[in-house]
Amino acid sequence: MPHPDAAPSEGGLPKAGRLPRRRRRFQAIRQAPLKLLVGAVLLTVLVAVAAAAPWIAPYGFEDMSILKRLKPPSAANWLGTDEFGRDVFSRMLMGARLSLMMGFAATAVSLVIGVPLGLWAGYRRGPVDEIIMRSTDVLLSFPPIMLGLLMLAVTPPSLWKLIIAVGIVYVPSTVRLTRSITLGLAGEEFVQAARARGEKTFYILHAEILPNAWPPIMVEASLRVTFAILLGAALSFIGLGAQPPSSDWGLMISEARPLLDRAPWVALAPGLAMGITVIAVNLLGDGLREALDPRTKRRGG
């Protein structure tokens, strides 16, 4: 479960160099297209597949068949079957839905809670800032999985609880990132100018600061999607997330573990699928970061 706080870009706003910012960005995108392009294409395909899963899956993901237990990959069952005779390929496709939803929904949760808190803390400072920051200190002092464990241990597991829990795990780091960006932006002259013409705090936050804070927040968020997918899978794997007969990838791997000797494909298929998903999102996030980061395009003179 990668910890997003370690990202080196925290608070690092793209600084305007001699070239206008926007033009730099277009250039940069033209220069570093590969990661971004591959990531975007891969992810689009994955999302499409996940969305169409019920229609393109050759079998229902819960259809059992005693006759077809633990069959190796074949023309009929591309990735073989599991111990209940369910088609691994179909289940994997359905799992893509859960995994992507897990990643994006949990990230959305962390953004919805974290970004406003960060904006508020960074702009208003004072006691509110102090309380928010000390709370994130406490939350960050739990290793990420422990916080999830703690939240999930107390109630019967279910997918939506898993999403909320994973989202909350990443709230403190979202708050910190947003706050540090806001701190920097609040001193910028265009924010001072907005204050000088008597704008309300709400307007300054959403119209002046937020549009400039989005790019770095989104870069971090895109990487956090992968953390959320991995953390969600891990929690499902140890039995605190999705419950059988769900086709969550983490759960599938967990269920396939006793059968490793006889049917390794049941465990390998979801693992590889997860790898591809995470790589796609990572490529996209890294591509974005490089494209937005003027440091990668520095020149002397």
Binding site: P2, A233, G250, I253, A267, L268, G271, M274, G275, N282
Partner: peptide, 15 residues
Amino acid sequence: SYIGISVPEFFWGIV
């Protein structure tokens, strides 16, 4: 490192 961070540790364990 891409491969390393793209797959959860329990999967590497199983492999």
